[in-house]
């Protein structure tokens, strides 16, 4: 193992555990409404959107078609594994077909 990798992993672990324990510690002091509360609530979704949008924007028609297929399956089945599987199969198929 690279020493640097261990440092990164331990830092990630400390941060993540700190957030989990911190929620219990700070529960009474967290803003329940107002701007900060709204920003915190939006954060997970916004991080996901920030990850997905550039990946789709950089891809070609196969990636765009697979993204649509993933979204369609997620909306109809609400199943994460099903949406993942269809997305992966769709991109593999679309690349062959469009190539």
């Amino acid at each position: 193992m690279r020493a640097e990798a261990v440092v990164a992993i331990v830092a990630m672990a400390g941060i993540t555990w700190g957030l989990r324990a911190g929620g219990l510690a700070l529960a009474r002091r967290l803003p329940q409404q107002g701007r900060i509360a709204r920003a915190l609530q939006q954060m997970p979704g916004c991080v996901m959107a920030a990850l997905v949008a550039p990946a789709v924007a950089q891809g070609g028609p196969a990636e765009a078609a697979a993204a649509l297929a993933t979204a369609a399956v997620m909306f109809t089945t609400r199943s994460l594994p099903a949406a993942m599987a269809v997305g992966v199969a769709a991109v593999a198929g679309a690349r062959q077909w469009l190539a």
């Binding site: 920030a50 997905v52 997305g87």
Partner: peptide, 28 residues
């Protein structure tokens, strides 16, 4: 593409009505 598919699916699972739309568009 599994990564993109996973996060797209996770994102859509977090949809909480129209209040989600504007922040997501800004983020994207």
């Amino acid at each position: 593409f599994a990564f993109t598919a996973t996060f797209l699916a996770l994102l859509l699972g977090m949809w909480k009505g129209k209040a989600s739309l504007m922040p997501w568009i800004v983020a994207a």
